[in-house]
Design a protein around this nucleic acid. Structure first.
Length: 253
DNA sequence: GTGAACTTCTTCCTAAAGAC
DNA sequence: GTCTTTAGGAAGAAGTTCAC
């Protein structure tokens, strides 16, 4: 890779890291506010409980509202119909933030990778399926957005993933992760995407890219916003040892 | 205006492969 | 042989599009 290209990719990773840190610290400061926000549903539980369908997550809808509230100063919301749950414009970037909620019974959808919509990422590469031909993939988001005045801004993708116990609604852990911009497929290759729920869809293997590989300080692409060991069964803790290590390392730094 | 069909994201579930 | 993990099918929820 020539130096000019490498510098461009480093710049992309620099801004991915800057915004990840910004999201993480902003939510860390508002941690108590966030937890209180999550618990507000309990106050009026009798009024909504009977209308909660089997397929409706008790966390998903409400948690999006809480994060919208917490992100109210993050940037200017954008109304594009193609994008994540939250989509903001800042002075130099377009930032997509999608909220994913996963129950303990479905921990397989959380442990190594998470399901990602085509309209939530700009990654491109080949999906390698056991015993089959690789399938080409391209997310629907651009690597750069071009404004009507010709100005370009980088497209950044983040996921806030919430793992909770569906039996008592106890939070287990909350992660904030950055999915590499599509330009970085030259760095991360195909290892970070795997087959999704349906043909053509993908899962983001966040455990395959724990660091910003082009940054000197090897900053983490995954931040542990909440780790509630006291709520966790030993078997769950064991399955999430990767996240626990990350949390302990993050705590020391 | 109405309702069927379609789209996207999500949850629930399972067959097959892999690990122990 | 049994348990765990992976890949992905089926279907619900919510919203949109389109024909009538």
């Amino acid at each position: 890779m020539d130096t000019e290209k490498l510098n461009e990719l480093r710049k992309v990773e620099f801004w991915e890291n800057e915004y990840l840190e910004s999201i993480f610290y902003s939510l860390s400061l508002d941690r108590q506010k966030m937890l209180e926000g999550f618990s507000t549903k309990e106050e009026i539980k009798e009024d909504w409980e009977e209308y909660l369908g089997d397929q409706t997550s008790s966390f998903a809808t409400g948690s999006e509202r809480i994060f919208y509230w917490l992100f109210n100063q993050f940037g200017k919301p954008n109304s594009s119909p193609v994008g994540s749950d939250m989509f903001f414009e800042t002075y130099n970037a377009y930032v997509h933030i999608d909220i994913k909620t996963v129950t303990l019974s479905n921990i397989g959808d959380f442990r190594r990778n998470i399901f990602v919509g085509d309209n939530q990422n700009s990654y491109m590469g080949n999906i390698n399926v056991r015993g089959k031909e690789p399938r080409p993939y391209k997310g629907h988001l651009p690597t750069y957005y071009t404004k009507s005045n010709g100005k370009k801004k980088i497209c950044l993708t983040y996921f806030i993933t919430i793992l909770y116990d569906e039996t008592n609604l106890d939070l287990q852990t909350i992660l904030i992760m950055c999915m590499p911009n599509g330009l970085l497929n030259k760095v991360y290759g195909d290892k970070i995407i795997s087959p999704g729920k349906n043909p053509g869809k993908i899962r983001f293997n966040y455990t395959s890219c724990p660091y910003f590989e082009l940054l000197d300080e090897r900053a983490s692409r995954i931040k542990v916003l909440l780790w509630k060991e006291e709520n966790m069964e030993e078997s769950v803790e064991k399955k999430l040892s990767f996240i626990k290590e990350l949390y302990e390392r993050q705590d020391k730094s």
